Computed example of a mutant assay.
Amino acid sequence: MTDTSLRTSVLATVDRFCREHVQPAIADMERTADFPYELYRQAGELGLFRIDVPEEFGGIGMDHVLPLLAAERIARTSPAFAVTFANCADVLTPIIAKAAPHIAQSIVPQVAEGSKIPCISMSEPLAGSDVSAMRTRATKVDGGYRLNGRKMWCTNGSVGDVFVVFAKTDPDAGSRGISAFLVEYGVAGFERGRDEPLTGLRGNPTSELVFDDVFVPETHRLGAENEGFKIAMLTLDSARLNAAGMALGTATAALEIARIYALQRQQFGKPIFQHQGLQFLIAELAAEIEMSKAVWLKGLDALGRGDAKETTALASVAKLLCTEMAVRVTTECVQIMGANGLSKENSAERLMRDSRAFQIFDGTPQIQRLLIARHLVRDGLMIF
């Protein structure tokens, strides 16, 4: 099977999985906000977490682009489960690249099959965009490190099994004094805090983590000491393209719901789609989706070619455009549907709530503008 036919086959499997399993699970996720363990297990059985995992770890060994395409498709049905799916690849990247071989061999296959839920934890109460402000400390001791501190906003933190945790090993060195560690839940001193009651993404818990003198063996450090910031950067471009793609999928789903509604809803003797004011609005929203998608696909192309410089620039542009577009599109789609758009009987209001998160994580719009401006100062216009 060629790479193209395999990609088509995988995406067809993703679409079927969304129809048969994700869609029926949404009502319970919205009602309870509980993590969908059964849905996660089904995704693992289908091999969805294996897509870009190297074959030596039991994966399919495809490139890093296919999981991003899959996450966009899942987000058309459930942005919340799309984040859970995308988080898996984001966590595996630094483990595969930087973990000791025997550690990676013991953990990656279990994550790839869906039997272990992975998490990545960097943010803290006083350290979000300003990573160098983190206060969690990893103090060197005989045979390893003692980890002390508190983390926030950890995706799937309350259900996770294995965590990539970033901590200061040189408190005076800013971002150059951060190291990354692999910590499995269950070790002494590692406790889960509360889940944040977020506006959207129900069923995708965002959690507090507490580390109280947790011993981490030196073998569980990822990469060299004080290399943590560089390790975080390994995943950032793909994570931003992931956020952009999931926002794109969310907006696409919302506009399709509004389009169908506008064709069916009758006012003043004809479908509301035939009223020019509404017709033009829907056309504008469709154009915004297509423009944003073009930039996102250009970023995926750079990622697939391994052009790191181009990928970094386009990842920031795509995240800025796609996430801001998604908030506008989903909000307007609720408006198009009027009171029906506000009803939880329809998906439009859920998609509107979910879309907001994509603007915030992996770098806010303000951070993306800053990064784009830095690129312009250093390298000029992004004409590739």
Rank of each mutant, 00 (worst) to 15 (best):
A82I: 09
A82M: 11
V83W: 05
V83R: 07
T84A: 13
T84P: 00
A86S: 14
N87V: 07
N87C: 08
N87R: 03
C88S: 09
A89K: 13
A89T: 12
A89L: 04
A89H: 15
A89C: 10
D90A: 13
V91W: 11
L92M: 15
P94D: 15
P94M: 12
P94G: 14
K98C: 15
A99H: 14
A99Y: 07
A100P: 01
I103L: 13
A104H: 10
Q105M: 15
Q105Y: 07
S106K: 12
V108A: 04
V108N: 03
V108P: 04
P109N: 13
P109R: 06
Q110S: 10
Q110V: 02
V111F: 11
A112N: 11
G114L: 06
S115Y: 06
S115R: 15
C119A: 10
C119T: 10
I120C: 11
I120Q: 12
I120W: 04
S121Y: 03
M122S: 03
M122A: 07
S123P: 14
S123Q: 12
S123Y: 07
E124T: 11
E124H: 12
P125F: 13
L126Q: 14
A127S: 14
D130M: 11
D130R: 15
V131K: 08
S132N: 13
S132E: 14
M134F: 09
M134V: 08
M134H: 10
T136L: 12
R137E: 13
R137Q: 15
T139D: 13
K140T: 12
V141H: 10
D142G: 08
G143T: 01
G143W: 00
Y145F: 14
Y145V: 06
L147M: 08
N148G: 03
R150P: 00
K151Y: 00
W153N: 00
W153Y: 02
C154E: 04
C154V: 13
T155M: 01
T155Q: 02
G157Q: 00
G157W: 00
S158I: 00
V159A: 07
V159P: 04
V159D: 01
D161P: 01
V162T: 07
F163W: 06
V164I: 09
F166K: 05
A167C: 06
K168N: 10
T169D: 09
T169S: 12
D172E: 13
S175G: 01
S175P: 03
R176N: 05
G177M: 06
I178P: 00
I178M: 04
I178A: 04
S179I: 02
S179E: 03
V183D: 07
E184N: 02
Y185F: 06
Y185S: 06
Y185A: 08
G186T: 06
V187H: 05
V187N: 03
G189V: 01
G189S: 00
G189I: 02
F190Y: 07
F190P: 02
F190Q: 03
R192F: 01
R192S: 04
R192V: 08
G193K: 00
R194I: 03
D195R: 04
E196D: 04
P197A: 10
P197T: 01
P197F: 01
L198N: 14
